[in-house]
Computed example of a mutant assay.
Amino acid sequence: MNYKTDFPSIKGEVSPEEWQARLDLAACYRLIDKYAMTDLIYNHITTRIPGSPDHLLINLYGLLYKEITASSLVKIHVDGEIIWKPQTDYDINKSGYVIHGAIHRARPEVACVLHTHTRAGMAVSAMTCGLLPLSQTAIRFVGHIGYHDYEGPAIDLAERERLVNDLGPHDAMIMRNHGLLTCGATVQQAFNTMYQLELSCRSQVDAMAARTELTMPGENVLAHTAHLYQPGARRPYGVLEWPAMLRLLDAEQRNSDYPPYYY
């Protein structure tokens, strides 16, 4: 069986636009690993290929996020058909395009979809109260987050319509008894939203574990603050942070045995 993890660069075989999408997505996978939001080899991050709106990039099912490179990403149709993948026996996970494909198809303005199973995210997903506005970070999601009830492992195509309806116009969703999902107009935006959502969940779990009385701002403050933190309200979301995130990856690569994300 061919389960190698070192793949030759395909930079010269794809368009500059596709290569940039591959670089951004591979970096996003590495950052999710860096900030401890991975679940072994599971979950997915997908992005559209500019100029080919029905074509997505997704990870091989079997690689760690820290092993993913620009050249190891699989090109698929939004309905799940594999268009290109590296020479390997690794394949893709059906759940990846059931969840992600549904959102990409229904929301043409969405370029990237990110899904996680983190400890804090799963904890909050099991709470009847959902995400509480306990911090400035969490207040960003007031009125801007959806909830989807658990229906079992996401392999049923009939669940697609309900997923999309529950997400609505939002860029974040808590999947009950399951995990977290974010999306955005760019990879950078989807990552930044997930980072903020994960941090909100971790803070909530910590605050509730302290077993003390909690305080929350008034409704007028919540609405005003949430508005100010929406993408475009003050500046593009996630863009300013991205070069610093790439510098972080580059610095850590010097002491890593894994191939750089940009291969």
Rank of each mutant, 00 (worst) to 15 (best):
L60W: 10
L60H: 02
G62Q: 08
G62N: 03
L63R: 13
L63F: 14
L64V: 06
Y65P: 12
K66N: 04
E67H: 07
I68H: 04
I68F: 09
I68G: 05
A70K: 00
S72C: 12
S72T: 07
V74K: 01
I76E: 03
I76K: 09
I76N: 02
D79Q: 13
D79Y: 10
E81S: 07
I82R: 05
I82C: 04
I82G: 03
W84E: 11
K85I: 02
Q87Y: 03
D89H: 09
D89V: 02
Y90P: 06
Y90N: 03
D91T: 15
K94C: 00
K94R: 10
S95T: 05
G96K: 04
Y97E: 00
V98A: 07
I99T: 10
I99L: 15
A102M: 02
I103D: 01
I103N: 00
A106I: 12
R107I: 02
R107W: 00
R107K: 13
P108F: 03
P108L: 10
E109D: 15
V110Q: 10
V110H: 10
A111R: 15
V113S: 08
H115N: 09
H115E: 05
H115P: 05
T116E: 13
T116H: 13
H117W: 08
H117C: 10
H117N: 13
H117T: 05
H117Q: 10
A120W: 06
G121C: 12
G121Q: 07
M122A: 06
M122N: 06
M122Y: 05
A123W: 10
A123Q: 12
V124D: 02
V124A: 05
M127A: 14
M127W: 13
M127R: 02
T128K: 15
G130Q: 08
L131C: 12
L132M: 15
P133D: 09
S135Y: 07
S135D: 11
T137Q: 14
T137F: 01
A138C: 02
I139R: 07
I139M: 15
F141Y: 14
G143P: 10
G143Y: 05
G143M: 08
H144G: 01
I145H: 02
G146F: 11
G146N: 08
Y147T: 04
Y147C: 02
D149P: 04
Y150P: 04
Y150N: 15
E151C: 11
E151V: 06
G152L: 14
G152D: 08
P153F: 11
P153N: 12
P153I: 13
A154G: 04
A154S: 14
I155H: 11
E159M: 00
E161K: 15
E161H: 09
E161Q: 15
E161N: 07
V164M: 03
N165V: 06
D166P: 00
D166C: 06
L167D: 14
G168A: 00
D171M: 11
A172M: 04
M173D: 12
I174M: 03
I174H: 00
R176M: 00
R176H: 01
N177P: 07
N177Y: 15
H178M: 09
L180Y: 04
L181E: 06
L181F: 12
T182A: 04
C183L: 06
A185Q: 13
Q188I: 01
Q189S: 11
Q189G: 14
A190K: 10
A190H: 09
F191T: 00
F191W: 13
F191Q: 03
F191L: 14
F191A: 02
N192F: 14
